[in-house]
């Protein structure tokens, strides 16, 4: 029994095997499930896993409960769409412009908001996102409440438009892998240590020479940069941008919940969270469509269980199970 367990190396390498297997499964998915619905559901899951990774940088690692990320999502969607419609700029370039714009706005907003702590910071970010939504709702130049319709063209990589879902699947898969590797690298770096120190005790962090405002701003910049890329991806997927879809408050909460349910401040958490929140909910809605709202009931139950039993999320539950199993083994062994 014991030697059998040794076949799977312990610790990090077991983790790496899990990463590899997951990547292979995700890579095989579009070859197995070719129906548009299954592709769409998986694209959505990967999009939220990507957004969750991005939120995790500010919310999980740096510990700042930002609940206005939809503003950056919307900025990305609007910037690339406007540049494409008005000037014919490729949405790929527009995505970069939007991401830098979102990052800049995030830093400008973070500067005053980071004076606030805890719930007050969360409230300030919600208020900011609402202001952006109201602004775009009344701004005729960007289509106001009607929004923007992107011209439908034939398949073109340059125009970021495809008839099939499959290219979108690969693009968001690449985005997600990029964000995963980025967060992995950052979490092991000096910055990762500093973020966790700030989350744990900002005063103690200051006393150890950490410029807490600077590192919070950097985390806000990276986080909103990525979320804005997600906004461009979404607008190219649905070819339609309006305040009700890309600036709606729900999205801020969903992005945060993906990371919270999965496990804040963990690399794998957002993937697990997105799997549970986005994939399962879509499948439940598809399979049990005759029971409206069933997915919400299941969701709420999962949320209640997690927040009462293990607020650190699914990753911590898995960790608990693993150490429980190890204890059982060590008791049974002799």
């Amino acid at each position: 029994m014991k030697s059998y367990m040794r076949v799977i190396p312990k610790g990090m390498s077991a983790r790496h095997i899990a990463y590899l297997v997951s990547a292979m499964l995700l890579g095989a998915y579009p070859f197995v499930f070719r129906e548009p619905y299954f592709l769409y559901v998986m694209i959505n899951m990967l999009l939220y896993a990507f957004l969750g990774e991005a939120w995790n940088i500010i919310g999980g690692y740096a510990g700042q409960c930002a609940l206005g990320h939809v503003a950056f999502f919307g900025l990305g969607a609007y910037t690339s769409s406007m540049l494409f419609i008005k000037f014919g700029v490729s949405p790929w370039l527009g995505m970069l412009v939007g991401a830098f714009l979102a990052g800049g706005v995030a830093v400008a907003i973070g500067w005053p908001c980071f004076r606030l702590r805890g719930a007050y910071f969360a409230l300030a970010t919600i208020a900011f996102a609402e202001m952006v939504r109201v602004l775009f709702n009344h701004w005729e130049f960007v289509g106001g409440a009607v929004g923007l319709r992107l011209p439908v063209l034939s398949d073109s990589f340059k125009a970021f438009q495809f008839r099939s879902y499959i290219p979108y699947y690969w693009i968001i898969f690449a985005f997600f892998v990029f964000s995963f590797l980025l967060v992995y690298r950052l979490s092991k770096s000096k910055m990762g240590f500093y973020w966790r120190a700030i989350r744990s005790d900002p005063d103690a962090a200051e006393s150890l020479g950490i410029d807490t405002t600077k590192y919070k701003l950097i985390s806000m910049f990276i986080s909103s940069f990525l979320v804005s890329m997600g906004g461009t991806f979404y607008s190219q997927l649905v070819l339609y941008v309006d305040p009700a879809s890309v600036l709606v408050r729900d999205l801020s909460v969903r992005v945060a919940l993906v990371a919270i349910v999965g496990g804040m401040g963990t690399i794998e958490g957002p993937v697990l969270g997105s799997f549970i929140m986005i994939l399962l909910s879509s499948l439940i809605r598809a399979r049990f469509g005759e029971v409206p709202g069933l997915h919400l009931v299941i969701f709420a139950t999962i949320l209640i269980v997690i927040s009462t039993y293990e607020p650190r999320g699914m990753m911590a539950i898995l960790e608990n199970l693993r150490s429980w199993a190890e204890r059982r083994r060590s008791v049974a062994a002799p």
């Binding site: 966790r196 744990s200 200051e206 006393s207 150890l208 807490t212």
Partner: peptide
């Protein structure tokens, strides 16, 4: 000066109520 700048100058401190990073 700000607290982090003073630390960089070469002054360290501990707190009356312990403030370790508990989850690290």
């Amino acid at each position: 000066l700000s607290a982090h700048a003073i630390c960089k100058k070469g002054i360290g401190r501990t707190f009356q109520i312990v403030r370790t990073f508990k989850d690290m």
